[in-house]
Design a protein around this nucleic acid. Structure first.
Length: 648
RNA sequence: GCCGAUGUAGCUCAGCUGGUAGAGCAGCUGAUUUGUAAUCAGCUGGUCGGGGGUUCGAGUCCCUCCAUCGGCUCCA
């Protein structure tokens, strides 16, 4: 007999070789029906595999991330089986589960797959799933594995097998399909009740752009049709919130083929919105001791040779421009930091002067491959809310904490309630890849970890993800639809102070090298506005929104009064418009609702006579009438509350 | 950059197997003077992404370039 410890720490005894599924069955039949996989001593395995010694067991269902992953991985096999039946001769690459669903990379030979092919595959998958096909695990020798896929003429699997060690190779068989696979898999296909193949895309074999492009089909499956329907609604909602669509509808920004791809044009409403965001951050930075600087959009090539950017990115950049007579070469600036380094070294610095915090909303230009460009999130010209902190090593931790404060303040004010921080450290097995002394690295990594912990950040640590010049802390937020975005970043840099030979005089009257911190709480204005748009679905906080109030006159007779109200609001620094159009009130309301203007003031005979306004709130409806003064107080209070909520 | 799809009026879209471009909204003009999500009528607006080709004739077929979208690769 063996002892099985369940998550509630209860211990049950079973014969040697009992499977997780049998354990589930001994608890309840319902549970057994829902088991997708099992975690045995922390390892996710097939629920049908026997357990041969004492173990901790967690049964995984659809409610567990690993349960979903197992189901989606099995769904990838199911799709492969369906495709092999429908299109014999297809060769298979890899087919893993992903965050939302799964994909399989396949070589269809000369056949071109189109979205029209997908419904037939979906139907076949459902048909096979209903057969309740089991997933049979089989350990095979390398020779047998090679033989199998040689006969099948699948060079991709053969390549994968060649990299595997004999004795560690397993096959999984489900229905007519046999795949090289580590597993784990579902007990059988019956939980797969709803299937949707989402799209077809090209993907390089093994992610290598020099190798063949395979056809990748993405899909997702669910145990209930209703869950699939809900997921599809979510996708629809995401489409509605696409910042590219909202940006056009709300007249925030546009693109022009003539100006060039990846070069956003900010329209008046978007430009003013951006200015408000900048002012907001500038105020925070001023309080935190940052000093504004301004630097030009181009810099001599020598600057970037000193910084090392030219050697590393020069060939992939916009090419340098030349002066006609002297033949000097200038680059569009891809980074602000080299300029800021030169500002730091513009005069001697004492240890008493540090930290020096230089801030600039600096516009940079980077060549991005044409296929990479995407709305405002991936562009060729963008403005970083950049700052560089030059400090002593012993100041690193406090500076980090102060930057974290700014980032968290922004998240709270802008209503990003879910966020995580990723700490990227160097790979200790590979220290020669990195610049800077071991001592400095250890100090910096410790400073980041401690700063994050003292600020109570939820962090994930990634070993080996650091930049070659220093460790970093990146912030990810989840938006209202649960999608993750990477925003702000804080990076330690030992490289540039070295390359620019920056120094300060210490209390010992010796020269010392400062540490540099790059930080951008928004990341870039473009990306941040995009995320803000998708997060709020086009609705902005009252203090930020382009137009706060629109005044709707019931008829032309009241346009004068509407303009008078607008004047009073503008005097109170409220952004107000007047809809003077000769339209019915219902139409004006409809249009204002579509434009997501937070407040609508309806004015007609009653209001003019009593000096009041009828207030309607976006998305809520009629709030009744009040005096203009009361309305101004209402707005100011709302904004004040938004700000105080987080200051307090 | 790579694979695939798409590109028709400011926006959303129709246009069958080639026969000479159409709707709704927006805009303009007029009528109406409107009370909490679309008043009515008329009008303007398109070298059908650019270029080349096939054809008596191309939005429609072919080639090529550009842009956009979905991915891949990349992202200081």
């Amino acid at each position: 007999m063996i002892n099985i410890t369940l998550p509630d720490n209860s211990v049950r005894q079973y014969p040697v070789g009992t499977t997780s599924l049998e354990v589930a069955l001994s608890i309840s039949e319902g549970l057994a029906r829902n088991v997708l996989a099992a975690k045995v001593n922390g390892e996710v395995r097939d629920a049908t595999r026997p357990i041969n010694s004492d173990a901790r067991l967690q049964l995984l269902t659809w409610n567990d991330t690993e349960g979903k992953a197992t189901m989606w991985h099995s769904s990838a096999h199911l799709m492969a089986e369906a495709i092999e039946l429908l299109f014999p001769g297809v060769k298979f690459g890899i087919g893993p589960d992903i965050e939302n669903g799964f994909y399989y990379d396949m070589d269809f030979g000369d056949r071109q797959m189109t979205p029209e092919d997908l419904p037939a595959i979906e139907a076949k998958m459902l048909e096979l799933a209903r057969e309740k096909q089991g997933f049979k695990r089989r350990e095979v020798s390398k020779a047998l594995a090679l033989d199998f896929f040689t006969k099948k003429n699948d060079e991709y699997k053969l390549e994968l097998i060649k990299d595997l060690e004999d004795g560690q190779i397993t096959f999984y068989e489900s229905g007519s399909f046999t795949d090289l696979c580590r597993g784990p898999h579902l007990p059988d296909t019956s939980p797969i009740k709803a299937v949707k193949l989402l799209n077809i895309a090209g993907a390089y074999w093994r992610g290598d752009e020099k190798r063949k492009m395979l056809t990748r089909i993405y899909g997702i499956t669910f145990p209930k049709q209703k869950e699939l329907d809900e997921y599809l609604v979510l996708l629809e909602e995401a489409k509605k919130r696409d910042h590219r669509k909202l940006g056009r509808e709300l007249e925030l920004f546009t693109f022009s083929q003539k100006v060039g791809q990846g070069l956003p044009l900010w329209l008046p409403k978007g430009a003013m919105l951006r200015e408000r965001l900048e002012r907001f951050l500038k105020n925070l930075q001023q309080k935190a001791g940052y000093l504004p600087v301004m630097t030009p959009h181009i810099g001599n090539v020598e600057l970037y040779k000193t910084s090392g950017h030219f050697q590393k990115y020069g060939k992939d950049s916009f090419q340098p421009i030349n002066t006609p007579i002297e033949g000097e070469q200038f680059m569009l600036k891809p980074m602000n930091c080299p300029h800021h380094c030169e500002i730091f070294s513009s005069k001697p610095r004492s240890y008493k002067d540090l930290p020096v915090r230089l801030a600039e909303f600096g516009t940079v230009y980077r060549y991005e491959q044409s296929g990479e460009l995407h709305g405002l999130t991936r562009v060729r010209g963008f403005t970083q809310d950049d700052a560089h902190i030059f400090c002593r090593p012993d100041q690193l931790k406090d500076e980090f904490k102060s930057v974290i404060d700014i980032v968290l303040h922004i998240f709270r004010i802008l209503n990003f309630q879910e966020y995580t921080a990723q700490v990227s450290l160097r790979d200790p097995a590979n220290t020669e890849k990195y610049i800077g002394s071991d001592e400095n690295w250890e100090k910096a990594e410790r400073a980041i970890m401690e700063a994050a912990e003292e600020k109570g950040l939820k962090t994930i640590v990634e070993i080996g993800e650091a930049a070659f010049y220093g460790p970093k802390l990146d912030f990810m937020v989840k938006d209202a639809l649960g999608r993750k975005w990477q925003l702000g970043t804080i990076q330690v840099d030992y490289n540039l102070p070295e390359r620019f030979e920056l120094d300060y005089t210490g209390s010992d009257n010796q020269k010392h090298r400062p540490v540099m911190i790059h930080r951008a709480p928004f990341g870039s204005m473009e990306r941040f506005v995009a995320v803000l748009l998708e997060h709020g679905g086009g609705n902005f906080p009252l203090w930020l929104t382009p137009d706060q109030v629109t005044i709707l006159s019931i008829s032309e007779k009241y346009v004068d009064y509407a303009n008078k109200v607008a004047g009073l609001l503008r005097n109170a620094e409220i952004r107000a418009l007047v809809d003077e159009r000769n339209e019915k009130t219902g139409k004006k309301i409809r249009d204002a609702e579509i434009l997501k203007i937070p407040y609508m003031l309806i004015v007609g005979e009653k209001e003019e006579q009593s000096g009041t306004v009828s207030v309607r709130k976006h998305g809520q409806g009629d709030l009744g009438s009040m005096s203009i003064e009361e309305f101004i107080a209402l707005i100011n209070n709302e904004i004040k509350q938004m700000m105080e909520m987080v200051n307090g």
